[in-house]
Each structure stands twice: as C-alpha cells, then as structure tokens.
Write a protein that binds this DNA or RNA. Structure first.
Length: 881
DNA sequence: TGCGAGCGGGG
DNA sequence: GTGTACGCTCGCA
C-alpha cells in the first residue's frame, strides 16, 4: 500500500476521459505518481427548469436531483447535480446556465481541488492508496507510477526530505542602459545551487563563455538545453530563487521559445513549463514541482525597509551580496577575465543567497502547516492570499454538512460590493486617546476576539435569521442568529475545532524537546491561529464566496459593544482611567509603579471583566507601557515591558509611526529614534527638545557626516520619460553630461544630497562623492524643513511644543517669564529652577512646556512642575493652588 | 484627507 | 486551466 506526501495534483485527458495524477514523495525519498481514473467533474445548479436547460448538452453525462442545502434556503427550489465529461468545459456550461437565469454552485472549483476536496486531501498531506498496478507510461518522470482506485488521507507527522534547487540568471541587454528584453537579449549565465548535490557538486554555473568557474557553451541554445537536463536529472521537488516567479523563469521560457527549445523540466514529459501573465505578475507552473520564490515570501513575512536581495541578505542572513550594479553587468561580461570572474561569482552568490533564505530562515514551515490545514497545495499557499485557503477549507466543511457552496462573485457583483463595503462596513471601536505622556499603563486585550465572538454568538451564514420568531441571539447591529442548541453554525464549529486543536498543539509543544519537531509544531499552532482569524475578514471581503456584510457588521458590532462595556466597567467598578483602546484592547492607567504589582492588578481586573462578558470572551493581561505617548488614534509610541521566561523584557514600541521611510535620510530615522527614546525613557521633554536643537545646530554648522544625509531613489525609466522634475533624475542628467561612462542606468538606485544654491530644489541634487570632492555646501534648510521637521513636528506637537519653539526663532518664554505671568504657580523651595522641564496636569497628566494663560489645565486640573525625576512630590504637597 | 496611478523585485 | 490572483507609497487635488 503506497504511502506518500502530496506535492502536486493535475489531470490529463485519456480517451476523452479525465485522469487525475497525484505527484508525491514517499518516506524513502522516491518520487511517485498515482493515476486515478474514475473521477468526473461535476457541479450543482439551483432552479426548477435546470434539467430542461441542460438536456441538449452533449457535455452533460448525468443530471440528477439531489438533497442539498443552500445558504439562506430559497424556499425549496430543487438542486441538481450535473456531471460532465470534460473539466475544461465546465465554465462554458456554467455561463450558459447563468445566461438563462439559473444559479450554479461549485462550478468554479479547479478539477484537482474538486478531487482533493472530495477525498479530504491536502498539499503536503500524507495519503495511503490502494495497491495499484504499475503502469508502463513514459509520460511522467518519477520513480514509481501506479494506478489508484482508493485513496485516503493518512495521519503522519514527519515530512519527507524535499529536494531544493536554486536558480539565478544574468542576461546582457543589447541596448546599453536599458532593461533587458526577453524577446531579444540573451541569457549569458545560469547559476544553480543544490541542497543535495548534483554530480558531486553543490553549485554549477553555466555560461556562453568558458572560464575556470563556469561551464561554457557554444551558444545560448546549448546552455538552455543543459539547464533543462540538469533540472530533470537533479529532479528537485522545489525550485527557488529571488524573484524567479516574475523574472528568471518567465525570462528563461521566452529564451527557450526564441531558441526553439521545448521547456520541459517538470515531472510530466509532455506538459510545457508555463508562465502565465496575470494582472501584474506571472504565475509559473511546473508539473510536480513547487515554485518557491524567496523574494515573495520574505516580502510577506518580514518587515524591512527594502526588499532587494542585498538588503534582505544583510538584514536576515547577515551576509553581503556582491556589489554589482545592474548597469555594470554588461561591462563585466564584455570585459577582461577578472571582470568575467567577478560576474560569475556574483551570479553564484545570488543563487546561494536565495537558497540560504529558504533553508536558514525556515521560510517554508509556516506555509507547509497552512497547506496541510487548509487543504491547498503548497505552491498555492505560497502565491495566493488568504482567500484560496479559507474557501478551500470552507468548501469541505459546507459539503460535510450537506450544503452546496456558492461560486465566486462575478465582476459586476464585486464592483457593487466594493462600493458597499466602503460605506457600510463598520470596523472596530477606537477610543479617543487621552492626550499627554502617560506612565504605568497596562495593556489588556481580548485574545482572538472575532473568532470568540463568532463562537459565542453562533454567527454564521447558516444560522442567520432574517425574520426571527424570537428564539434567537441578537447582536447589537440587529442581526439575529439561531442559538447553538437549535443549530450550531458551520463557522463557529470550525473555529471551535481550530482553537481546540491549537491548544492541543501548544500543549504538545511544551512537552517536546526535539528542535525539528518543535519547529513544525510551532508552525502548526501559528497556522491554526491564522486560519481562525481569517474567517471574519473573509465575510467582509468583496471577492469572497460567502461575503455577507450583515454578518461582518454583526461581528464588529459585538466587538464594539464589548470594548465599550469593558471600558465602562473598568472606570466605574475600579475607578481607573482607560487612556486608549483599539478594537480588542484597552490601555488602563494604574496608580502603581512596580511591574509585578501592575500585572497582578491587571489580572484582577481581567478576571472580573471576563466573568461579566459572554462566555468564551476572555480579557487578558498583555504587557505594560511604562510610558505611553499617543499621537492620534492608531498612532503612538511606548516604552513597553513584556513578561518572558527570563523576566521582564523592555523595548520601544511604535505603532503607525514611520521611523524608516525610503525617502528619508538616515539622520531623520536617527533623530526620531533618539527623541522618542529620551521622551519615553527619561520622561524629559526639555531634554528631547534640547537634543533636537542640537541636531539642527550640527546641521547648520556642517557637523553631520554626509552619509547620514544621503537620500536614495530608483530610476525606473529613461530620464526623458519622467514628466515632472525629480531630484534624482535631474542628477542623472547632470552626470550624463559630466561623465557619461559613470552615468546610472535604468533600475539603478541613485544616491543624492541636496546642496546650497539658488535654483530649483530638484536641480540642486548632487552626487555625495562629487560633493565631497568639490567641497560643496549642504542645504541645511532643506534638511530641516523637508526631512527633519515633518515627522518630528507631529511628535512635539502633542506635547504642546510648537515648530517655532523647536527652531528657536519664535518668542521663547523662559521659566522666569512664565512665573512672572503666572503668580498662581508656586515653586517648591527645594526644587531647583534649572531642573524644571515643564508642567503636568495633576488630574489628566497632560503635559505643557508652558502653562495656558488660565494657569490651569484645559481640563480644569491644577498644574504641577515636572522635572527629570518625574513630578516633584514636594511640589504636589507644598503648592497652594 | 482622500483618491488614483504606478511601482516593486529581477537584469 | 471549472484560470482573470496584489498592496503599498507617493503625488496631486
């Protein structure tokens, strides 16, 4: 009885009948392909005259009335199951039916997924098949091929060892400085890396020139032929590379076409490898192999400033990419032996890095877990978003309970929904943050709030009641659902199972020591959480098959209700202030400083609240903000303390605040980070202003290293094609005149600084090296006004410090002036004037650098002096207000 | 502040 | 291939 893990599924037509092929790998490392012959495409259609409509269709093998439920039960209209001969004809028949007013269901499910769904199979899931006879077909390139008449999923945890190969190409444009054109410009190098070894080698570079580290070929065609041969002989389960989906593979395929070579390097010897252009990307299909584009995964899983291979390797692998600019490649290729070797080393390293990313960062763990849980093939979890996973999963669950699943909405319907969602979908409740720099704030949140709400209120399209008889669960939005006792919804049931499974996996994780097992268990619990959290979003997503705004709104209305009730209870029952909250969290200011005391108090509050709310909703202690500075709704900075196994861990948390933007120079990120740190950790507004003024002074005096002032932008098209004036493009034009040989090409990143002068800003962009060599002056005013000020002004503004104060050119009031103007403020005897950094309201903690004319806070509360040591207690005690 | 265009990665 | 699949950032109004 063959047992193997599924890598890919497709079908072929044999004697006018479809045959499903299941490609996989067994535990001995053999590649297998099972052929399943008795599966036919089918779908459902709703309507009285559906049968009549299809009678004349030659494609239709069978049409039978079936007992199936339809969401929102449309008064017992009959449901027909329609079985066809050829999967490829389904869409035709579907559209025909639609045109005649019938409603098709499950008529847009890929044939392979129809099969996988009906047999409960998953990408990378294990299966056990009947003992099939081997078949003497020469169409597939696998170790074992056999007929399958029975197939079922198998519980097995460990994964087979998968073979991985990395690919990177270099090509040389015929037209200098322009992006390569796959129709004309040949590939000159193909670099490959193997996680195993091929003919004893870990890496191979092919080229149309020979040298010591490259296998040379007479022409491009021969080299491409060798590439195909190597892929088929090494026979990888997965092919990786950096941006291969959108560059290397489509490029190679086009070159093969130009050279009259058949692109056959999948596990089917008849099907071409294809790259289909979608809206703005290619989708590569290689039968039996999985495309793993490390660029696409890294971009999704890591938050970085830039995603070019150089930055990615440096940040995530602590490795340097060879420094070769795109515009240099042609020169190196056409240059001397040393140049050529440099280019070869560069190509070699790129393939190596792409593979290292996958292996060292375990990029696949999460996606393997998602594939197994959702049922999608691994290649589809790597490309598509949440939609395909959720719908694949839901299809199975709806079918299990006798429901037919809707088709995806048509274009006009999507358009209609997109308009509606914008206007009618209400999100979470965001509390107005209390202004000021707060201390000792505890963050509490509802774990998995939306999944818990769905379970608690039994929210599901299958339990929605449109004209209830009273025995329903009412949500604050007005939508009503059947109680669980009457009928448990499918989505609530799924969530219950997913959440229980996650608890079990987490428990197992705690008892497991083996590093590899831990990694896969951790990925599994993560994937279970991701899946559970995906259902809410899906209901409000215009392209979803089970989109329902009424239900999405019911969920968020419960959330808003719960968070407001929570805030009310904390304020009323405990007398503490909720200074902020967003969707599923509340931030509470507590009157104690000790971290453990705060945590304990938070636990008490959380327990109390949890008892008052619907079952299943649980408020939890999350972390402590020793200092919390809200800027606006959804944007704040905080000094956080989180509890870890090793004790309290501190750090700075920023939400919605951009500290790194690619069009800012290093000085900005640095200044911003420092200002925030001084504010949060020292709670010292005056010092942060002083620091900021120091930065400006350094800038004016020319004391800032040039490197910190460099701004980088990419030139994406030829300079003449830019409509407006842009600094980096104007600089390129200048360099083209000055030194054409050094001029950057398309795709190059241009570094520039802005120098002093009279002309337009964009005309004053200069090459940093040129500035250095010629001793040009930096335009400090530009850096102050356009770089430093915009982000920092917003932070200082919430502390009551204006731009003119920061720049020191407005009228600045000294402390003595303030005291003279405000006789009601009395200085404590033992408080040194020099130490006073500002004023703080005793009641609401709002901070002022100088007090309002009334002498008291806007909220009416009395003002206290503040100093680096915090608010002076002696002032508090001795100031007669 | 909201909207539409256009770019990203690769060479 | 029962295909039609982004998502953010910037500039402009």
């Amino acid at each position: 009885m063959p047992e193997f893990q599924i890598l890919d599924v497709d079908y072929i037509i044999v004697n006018e009948r479809p045959v499903i092929r299941i490609f996989g790998k067994d535990s001995e490392g053999s590649t297998v392909c099972g052929f399943y012959e008795d599966f036919l495409p089918y779908f459902y259609v709703l309507g009285d005259d559906a049968k009549k409509l299809l009678e004349h269709e030659a494609q239709v093998l069978k049409i039978e009335q079936v007992e199936r439920k339809v969401i929102g039960a449309k008064n017992g209209k009959p449901v027909y199951k329609v079985t066809l001969k050829n999967p490829a004809k389904t869409s035709e028949i579907r559209e025909e039916l639609r045109a005649k007013g019938a409603e098709p269901f499950e008529a847009d499910i890929l044939f392979k997924y129809r099969f996988m769904c009906d047999f409960g199979l998953s990408g990378l899931g294990w299966v056990k098949t009947s003992d099939g006879n081997g078949i003497a077909t020469d169409t597939v390139n696998v170790d074992k091929k056999f007929k399958v008449s029975e197939i079922k999923p198998l519980k097995k945890e460990e994964d087979s060892q998968l073979k991985l190969m990395a690919v990177d190409i270099e090509c040389v444009p015929l037209k200098e400085g322009l992006a390569p054109d796959a129709k004309k410009d040949p590939v000159v190098l193909i670099s490959m890396g193997f996680n195993g070894s091929y003919k004893g080698k870990k890496e191979i570079v092919l080229g149309t020139k020979a040298d010591k580290d490259v296998t040379g070929f007479e022409n491009e065609g021969e080299m491409l032929g060798e590439f195909i041969k190597i892929v088929n002989e090494y026979d990888p389960d997965m092919i990786t590379g950096f941006n291969i989906n959108n560059f290397d593979i489509p490029y190679l395929l086009e070159r093969m076409k130009q050279n009259g070579i058949k692109p056959i390097f999948g596990r089917c010897k008849q099907k071409f490898v294809t790259a289909t252009k979608m809206v703005s990307r290619y989708k590569v299909n290689i039968v039996g192999r999985i495309m793993v584009d490390s660029y696409e995964i890294v971009k999704r899983d890591f938050s970085l400033k830039r995603y070019d291979l150089g930055s990615v390797a440096e940040n995530l692998l602590q490795e340097k990419k060879d420094n070769v600019k795109h515009s240099q490649i042609e020169k190196l290729w056409k240059g001397n032996q040393e140049d050529l070797r440099k280019l070869i080393a560069y190509a070699r390293k790129d393939a190596y890095l792409a593979m290292e990313l996958v292996v060292r960062l375990n990029l696949l763990d999460k996606y393997i877990a998602l594939a197994k849980i959702s049922g999608t093939l691994l290649q589809d979890t790597l490309i598509g978003g949440e939609t395909s996973r959720v719908e694949n999963f839901l299809l199975r669950e709806f079918n299990k309970e006798g429901y037919v699943f809707p088709c995806k909405p048509q274009a006009w319907e999507i358009g209609r929904r997109e308009g509606l969602v914008k206007v009618e979908l209400k999100g979470g409740f965001v509390l107005e943050p209390e202004r000021g720099l707060h201390s000792d704030v505890v963050v509490m949140d509802f774990r998995s709030m939306y999944p818990s709400i769905i379970r608690s209120f039994n929210i599901c399209p299958t339990t929605l009641v449109r004209n209830g008889d009273g025995n329903t669960i009412k949500t604050p939005s007005g939508a009503e659902f059947l109680p669980k006792e009457v009928k448990q919804g499918i989505i609530p049931r799924i969530l219950e199972e997913l959440m229980k499974r996650r608890q079990a996996v987490k428990k197992k994780l705690k008892q497991t020591e083996d590093v590899y097992k831990r990694k896969s268990l951790d990925a599994e619990q993560w994937a279970l959480k991701i899946m559970a959290n995906a259902f809410y979003g899906h209901l409000g997503y215009p392209r979803a098959k089970i989109y329902d705004l009424e239900i999405a709104n019911a969920i968020t209305s419960c959330g808003r209700d719960i968070i407001q009730k929570t805030k009310g209870m904390i304020e009323k029952e405990f007398g503490y202030r909720v200074v902020y909250g967003d969707t599923d969290s509340v931030l509470v200011k507590l009157p104690m400083e000790d971290l453990n005391e705060i945590k304990q108090k938070a636990g008490e509050i959380a327990n109390y609240i949890t008892k008052q709310l619907p079952v299943g909703l649980e408020l939890d202690f999350e972390k402590i903000f020793k200092r919390f500075l809200p800027l606006t709704k959804k944007r704040y900075v905080a000094w956080k303390f989180e509890e870890t196994a090793a004790g309290w861990a501190e750090g700075i948390e920023m939400k919605g605040v951009e500290t790194i933007r690619r069009d800012w120079c290093q000085l900005v990120s640095e200044a911003m980070g420092n200002v925030i740190e001084i504010l949060l950790k020292k709670s010292d507004v005056k010092e942060s202003v002083k620091y900021f003024k120091g930065v400006i002074e350094d800038l004016l005096k020319g004391n800032v290293p040039l490197q910190k002032l460099v701004i980088t932008k990419t030139m994406t098209k030829p300079p003449r094609n830019y409509a407006g004036m842009q600094p980096h493009i104007e600089l390129v034009k200048k360099i083209q005149l000055r030194n054409p040989a050094e001029a950057p090409g398309i795709g190059d990143r241009i570094e520039y600084v802005i120098v002093k002068g009279t002309g337009l800003l964009s005309k004053r962009a200069e090459d940093p090296v040129y500035v250095m060599d010629n001793g040009l002056q930096i335009d400090s005013q530009y850096y102050i006004e356009n770089q430093l000020m915009p982000p920092l002004e917003r932070i200082f503004a919430v502390l009551g410090i204006s731009k003119s104060e920061l720049l020191g050119n407005g009228k600045q009031m000294g402390l003595m002036d303030i005291l003279n103007n405000h006789h009601e403020l009395v200085m404590a005897r033992d408080l040194n004037l020099e130490e006073v950094t500002g004023f703080v309201c005793e009641k609401c903690s709002r901070i002022y650098s100088r007090p309002p004319l009334t002498g008291s806070c806007e909220c009416g509360g009395p003002l206290l002096f503040s100093s680096p040591q915090g608010v002076s207690k002696s002032v508090l005690a001795e100031t007669p207000m």
